[in-house]
């Protein structure tokens, strides 16, 4: 108890200082977890998120749909794939994230019914492809075609909303290292999704987490897989540039 309090005070001081320095390197949510939670993430045999990665591998290699094709029939090398999302789909020009791209592939290439967002299959496939880029450093978003979406995502992040009239940045920029009851507020980075969240007892997507935050400030949440949330996802990717992919991260 004493150790945990000391640890929190130390971390609080550290991040209060860090959050005051413009342009400081981003700090992963990993640093805000207890040692037990960090250990759970670090050991691939204990990390519960690996169950979704393994299930995703099986799905990825299974033929499906009227076209009777497996994802692996087209995609042999997956390292670096997750780094490219969100991006504009080359054929439709629509902004997609990894999960909505998987849905498009299922519809167009496999001629199958796409997995529902946040379904076990969607989380599994996204976790598998995400984990294939584990450890790779996120790069800044440079595609000029994404600039408008990036700005819209940034605006969503910084706009106060809901009955409690709070912006994402009110907590995840201005209050980093402070305590909301027992929970220390992190910088709100997205570099480990899908994550295994102990509170959920499940893997979950970034969009599920965004909905939780919006509901927390009593704002009307956006839909899973919505354009609004993919724009926020794009901004969060830019904001976390320099952090490494931790998929599947474990959080409290």
């Amino acid at each position: 108890m004493l150790l945990s309090t000391l640890w929190r005070l130390g971390l609080s001081g550290l991040f209060s200082l860090a959050s005051c320095t413009a342009g400081a390197a981003p700090v992963s949510g990993y640093a805000f977890q207890s040692a037990d939670t960090q250990a759970l993430q670090d050991d691939p045999f204990m990390n519960p998120g690996m169950l979704w990665v393994d299930a995703g591998k099986a799905l990825f290699n299974t033929k499906a749909g009227a076209a009777n094709k497996a994802c692996s029939d087209c995609h042999q090398t997956l390292e670096g794939t997750a780094d490219k999302f969100p991006r504009l789909n080359p054929r439709t020009g629509a902004l997609v994230n990894l999960t909505t791209q998987i849905q498009l592939c299922q519809l167009d290439q496999q001629q199958a019914t796409p997995v529902a967002y946040e379904s076990q299959a969607a989380l599994a496939l996204t976790s598998y492809v995400g984990h294939a880029s584990f450890g790779r450093k996120w790069q800044p978003v440079t595609d000029p075609a994404l600039a408008t979406y990036l700005q819209r995502g940034a605006a969503y992040f910084s706009r106060r909303k809901g009955q409690l009239d709070l912006a994402c940045g009110d907590c995840h920029v201005r209050s980093v290292g402070k305590l909301l009851r027992g929970d220390m507020i992190s910088e709100g980075h997205s570099n480990g999704y899908p994550i295994y969240r102990l509170e959920w007892q499940s893997a979950g997507s970034l969009h599920r987490r965004l909905r939780s935050c919006d509901i927390g400030v009593r704002a009307e949440p956006r839909a899973l897989g919505s354009q609004a949330y993919i724009e926020v996802e794009l901004y969060l990717r830019q904001r976390a540039a320099g952090l490494s992919n931790e998929t599947p991260a474990v959080r409290r």
Binding site: K161, G162, Q163, L164, D165, L166, D170, R218, A219, P221
Partner: peptide, 24 residues
């Protein structure tokens, strides 16, 4: 200030349906 207004319904955006027009 980060402290929400506990008796205000003006100038709010994207308020969840169940809380619209209501004070905290």
């Amino acid at each position: 200030s980060l402290m929400p207004a506990y008796f205000n319904t003006n100038n709010l955006q994207q308020v969840a349906t169940e809380f619209q027009g209501k004070t905290v």
